[in-house]
């Protein structure tokens, strides 16, 4: 199916649960609210004409600098090997307590990228069986891929300088 047909089919199936469906640069893109994600994902996977059996990737995006509402986004890329088409599911998440339900019961491949969302962006993923940091150390503070996390300044873990005061070099959170 072409991207337009995929969007049409999805709209006819779960039109009430999606916020918007469009093609962007030739890719099929669906906007979904976090509450409806699991229902839409199940429909996408199990429908015979769509058959999105393969989860390619999950990414987080922080739109802090673009003044967009909502601030965060979790983006799912799905493929169908049977019909050779793809869809991108974009889930907007609120700035306060961003939380997106797990899809790891549908696609086991989601286990790791969802942990990465938790680690790098601080998203809560309710329903995930093993939600803990994956790339950063367990005791790490902050979520490195958020846009308000500074790039170069790093808190010193320990110092031989007795007069060292950690407050002096601590990064100041940038103002929005």
């Amino acid at each position: 199916m072409t991207s337009e047909e995929v969007i049409e089919k999805i709209q006819s199936m779960v039109g009430d649960d999606i916020q918007k469906g469009e093609t962007h640069l030739g890719d099929a893109v669906v906007f979904v609210a976090p509450d409806a994600l699991q229902k839409v994902a199940k429909a996408l996977k199990e429908d015979a004409d769509l058959r999105f059996e393969y989860l390619s990737d999950i990414r987080g995006v922080d739109y802090l600098d673009q003044d967009r509402e909502p601030r965060f986004e979790a983006v799912y890329e799905l493929h169908s090997f049977e019909h050779n088409h793809s869809v991108r599911v974009r889930v907007g998440l609120e700035e306060e307590n961003p939380s997106v339900p797990t899809v790891s019961d549908l696609w086991k491949g989601a286990l790791y990228p969802e942990r990465e969302l938790f680690d790098m962006f601080g998203f809560d993923v309710p329903g995930h069986p093993d939600l803990r940091r994956i790339i950063m150390p367990d005791e790490w503070e902050g979520n490195p891929l958020r846009r308000d996390y500074p790039l170069t300044i790093e808190d010193v873990a320990f110092s031989h300088n007795r007069e060292y005061k950690s407050e002096l070099v601590k990064p100041k959170p940038p103002t929005r």
């Binding site: 990737d57 990414r59 995006v61 673009q66 491949g109």
Partner: peptide, 22 residues
């Protein structure tokens, strides 16, 4: 992309990363 010459967000889909749980 946000329209500038610096990418706003770059995310790699790494086959090795996705293959580790499997």
């Amino acid at each position: 992309s946000d329209g500038t010459s610096v990418p706003y967000r770059v995310k790699l889909r790494a086959p090795s990363f996705m293959a580790i749980p499997g």
